[in-house]
Write a protein that binds this DNA or RNA. Structure first.
Lengths: 224, 224
DNA sequence: ACGTAAACGGAACGACTCTCTCCACATACC
DNA sequence: GGTATGTGGAGAGAGTCGTTCCGTTTACGT
C-alpha cells in the first residue's frame, strides 16, 4: 500500500540501539537472579536507564520477556535433538537433562518460563511446544535400549526437571551446584538396574536449607 | 498479684467458642488448599464469619498460623520417632518419608511452614528444630544396616522432601497421588543396590503439567 | 424480662506493590 | 541549526492485604 512493503522499521538511532542492548543485558541478569517477578524498575535501574526508555523499546513486560526467552527455549529443544545423536542412548538422555537443568538452575527466569509463570505465557507456548516431541524421542530410545526403566513416560521428565530446578533455584546463591546431588540420585532411580550408587557431588552444609530460606525472604518479603 | 494467679482467661461465651472452632477449621481448609498466602478474608468467609471476629480471637495472622501448625509439626517429629522403632531400618525410613510427604503434599500450608515461608517463622522454628535430630537417627540407622546409600546425609532429606512436595502441591488438584511416582524413583535411587525398579504408581496424563499450570494461575494471577 | 458485657460483621484505612503513561528536556543526525 | 527521535523518572491508576473501628447484635446472669 504505502511507501513500500518494508516490515523492517527504520534502524534505531545509535544511542537508542545502545540502550536497547543495555536493557536486554540487564533484563537477562535481573530475571536470571530474581525470576520473572522482578520489577521493570529493577531492570531499568540495572541498565542505568529510565523505565520510560524500557517502555519505548518493548511495548510491555511480556514482550521483553518473550524477546529474552524465545531463543533460550529453542536452545533447549536443540539440546534435546543433540542428545538424540549421542551413540549411547542413556548418556544422550543424561547429557540433555544435565544441560537443560544447568540452564534452568542458574536462571530463575528461564525456570519460571518453562514451569509456566503468568508472564508471556501466550507468547512462548508455541516455542515450548517444540520441546515435548524431542524429549519423547530421547526417552523412547533409551527405553528401547533397556537402559531407562520402562515404566517412566515422557511426561515425567518436565515434572522431574521442575522438581530438581526448584532445589536449584532455592539454593542458587548458597550452593549453586547442590542440585546435582538430587539429579544424581534420581538418575540412579531411573536406571533399569545398577549394582552400586553413583558418587554424589558436593555434600550439603548442615544448614543450607535454613540459609537458603533466610536469603529468599530477603527479596520476597510480605508487607506485615 | 490481683484476684488470683489464673492464667486461664475466663471461658469464652458459647457463641464465641463455637466461632473459634469454625475459624480454626476453615483456616485449616483454606491454608491447606491455597497455602499461607491465603487472605484472612478468605478464611473468614470460609468460616462464615467477619474478619473482625478472626482478629478478636487471634492477635494477627501469624498467631493463627502458629496455632494451626504447631501440632502438625510436632506430629511429624513423632512420625520420625515412630519410624525409628520399625524393626527394618530401611522400611522405617521409607515409612516416615511417606507419612511426612502425604501430609505435606495434601497440605500446601504445612509445606509452606516447613519449607519456610515468611509467616510465623519465629513462632514455629523451635517446633521445627525438634524434627532434625529424629531424621538424623533414622538416616544413620539405615546406613549402618547397609540399606541406605552411605553418601547421603541427614540434611539431604528436608531438601528432597521439599522437592517432592513441590510436585505434590503443584498437581494436588489435578492428580493428587502423582508425587508418589517421583518419590518411588528417588527411593530407588537411595537404595544401596537393586536389581529391578520398584513399580511406579499412577501414570501421569500427557498434559498434567499444563493443566496444573493453568489451574495455578487461576488463583495467583498478576495484575496486568 | 432486662441490662450489660461480650462478641459480631464488614466497610474502610493505610501502607504497600507494580505496571505503564506522560511530557519537559536532551540528543543524534541531516 | 532544526527537528524527529529518544530520555528520565515522577506519578497516575489499579491492585493487594493486614488490621482497625464502631454501630449493631447476642448471650448470659440476675
Amino acid at each position: 500500500m504505502s511507501i513500500e512493503a518494508e516490515h523492517q522499521e527504520r534502524p534505531l538511532r545509535a544511542d537508542a540501539e545502545r540502550n536497547r542492548e543495555k536493557i536486554l543485558a540487564a533484563a537477562a541478569r535481573v530475571f536470571a537472579e530474581r525470576g520473572l517477578d522482578a520489577t521493570l524498575d529493577e531492570v531499568a535501574t540495572a541498565a542505568a536507564v529510565g523505565v520510560g526508555t524500557v517502555y519505548r523499546r518493548f511495548p510491555d513486560k511480556d514482550a521483553l520477556i518473550a524477546a529474552l526467552f524465545e531463543d533460550a527455549i529453542d536452545e533447549i529443544a536443540g539440546l534435546a535433538r543433540a542428545g538424540a545423536e549421542h551413540e549411547d542412548s542413556w548418556e544422550g538422555l543424561v547429557w540433555f537433562l544435565d544441560q537443560a537443568l544447568e540452564r534452568q538452575c542458574a536462571n530463575r527466569g528461564l525456570r519460571d518460563v518453562v514451569v509456566g509463570s503468568p508472564y508471556a505465557e501466550a507468547n512462548l507456548e508455541i516455542a515450548k511446544g517444540r520441546i515435548a516431541p524431542c524429549i519423547a524421542r530421547l526417552v523412547e530410545r533409551a527405553q528401547r535400549d533397556g537402559r531407562l526403566r520402562g515404566d517412566v513416560v515422557a511426561a515425567d521428565f518436565p515434572i522431574m526437571e521442575m522438581m530438581i530446578s526448584s532445589v536449584g533455584n532455592m539454593t542458587a546463591t548458597v550452593a549453586p551446584e547442590l542440585w546435582r546431588r538430587y539429579f544424581t540420585i534420581i538418575l540412579d532411580g531411573l536406571a533399569v538396574s545398577r549394582t552400586s550408587p553413583t558418587a554424589l557431588p558436593e555434600v550439603p552444609e548442615e544448614n543450607v536449607m535454613n540459609e537458603a530460606i533466610r536469603k529468599a525472604h530477603g527479596h520476597a518479603r510480605r508487607s506485615h
